[in-house]
Design a binder for these strands. Structure first.
Lengths: 210, 210
DNA sequence: ACCTGAACACCGTTCAAGT
DNA sequence: ACCTGAACACCGTTCAAGT
């Protein structure tokens, strides 16, 4: 009979963290197209409308999921040694790639959250802080690497999802013989290309032709 | 009374081209979130189910729209002079950027069609054909430029859409003072960075450390 | 503070049937 | 060949009301 009502097995109320956790787990299990507010509510044993007490709308929820996916990129020691900018960017690009691949449809979710500006870009944050005297170069490299990695991984995840189905035949028909050996590693090659120029002299200003 | 029934003012039947045209026009007018099959049917004076005679599903329709948006990139003279690979890629990247910006939500539409493999990548086609003896380099540069340009433009178009609304205040609060003068041109700078390394010696194989 | 119940205004897609 | 009518199985979101 106390005022705060802490003396009985109370109903299992949810926090926003619980909702985001459940959303990420559901994403991994069913994929983005089947991640609906209604299904998530079912998963939590709650009415759909209850979710809107924890979250303003679906986009905000997906932004929170994106933030969770991206967190390890900026964490994990923000580059121990004093690497050249391009090397640091390449390393962060690989880390981003890994994090996106770690969750079903991770790249697609993050892509739209980034585009909508609902989640900060980890590469921009880390590189701006790590190279404060490099002018615009850190932002330029972060732009180049982030958009490449997210776009490439999006493509990659759609392709493996299609392969899990029976769509492999159509793809095989379009590509003659070199799809079995496409290149050593197209992702690594493109990422290396992008970051290589960042460590050249006069890389900061594109007007220098010479 | 002829068999083909060509003797009366017949109902205005639609071709698939008409449907795609209407879809692109509607996209430009209302944007991707409001481009529904039902609204498109309304626009054509037809029942929603009628669209499924012309098109297998919405994704295929959007792929056709994407192909229409991308067509001018590969056309328009496939690079007159014998440019270095990186220069050609930069030029094509600018052209792609222009085409995506020419239609509302163009980058988002094209992004998903490319990811799903429902539309060919113009950069890959043009560069593979233009540089047949350059090994994997043309594909690598095409990957890097395509994903960067599409991702950057997606971000760009969402931002201008948000600015058209009243969301400008939140963005301004997050960025201290350098958003008025962010850089000469972030897009051009990143694109130049990406394509610069393609014209360096040993750019084709990333294993060459030297 | 956290959730229910019920509703509003939509979706994409299928399919028998019409002309 | 091209389209209608009607239905199926869903959506995201709002809002008064409950505890």
């Amino acid at each position: 009979m106390v005022a705060d009502g802490s003396n009985s097995p109370r109903a299992p109320r949810r926090s926003k963290t619980d909702v985001v956790n459940a959303a990420l787990a559901l994403l991994d299990r069913v994929g983005l197209p089947d991640l609906s507010m209604r299904r998530l509510a079912d998963e939590l044993g709650v009415q759909p409308s209850a979710l809107y007490w924890h979250v303003e709308n679906k986009q905000e929820l997906l932004a929170a999921v994106s933030a969770r996916i991206l967190a390890p990129v900026a964490a994990g020691g923000a580059l121990g040694a004093a690497l050249p900018l391009g090397e640091a960017a390449r390393l962060l690009g690989e880390r981003l790639h890994d994090r996106l691949l770690a969750h079903r449809d991770g790249a697609e979710v993050v892509s739209s959250s980034l585009a909508l500006g609902l989640v900060p870009s980890p590469l921009h944050l880390v590189l701006a802080e790590g190279y404060p005297d490099a002018g615009h170069a850190p932002q330029v490299v972060a732009d180049a690497v982030t958009h490449f990695v997210v776009g490439y991984t999006f493509h990659e995840q759609q392709r493996t999802a299609a392969d899990a189905f029976g769509v492999a035949a159509r793809t095989a028909a379009l590509t003659p013989a070199d799809v079995t050996r496409p290149s050593p590693d197209p992702f690594a090659a493109a990422l290396a290309l992008i970051t290589a120029a960042a460590d050249l002299p006069a890389a900061s200003e594109p007007s220098a032709r010479r």
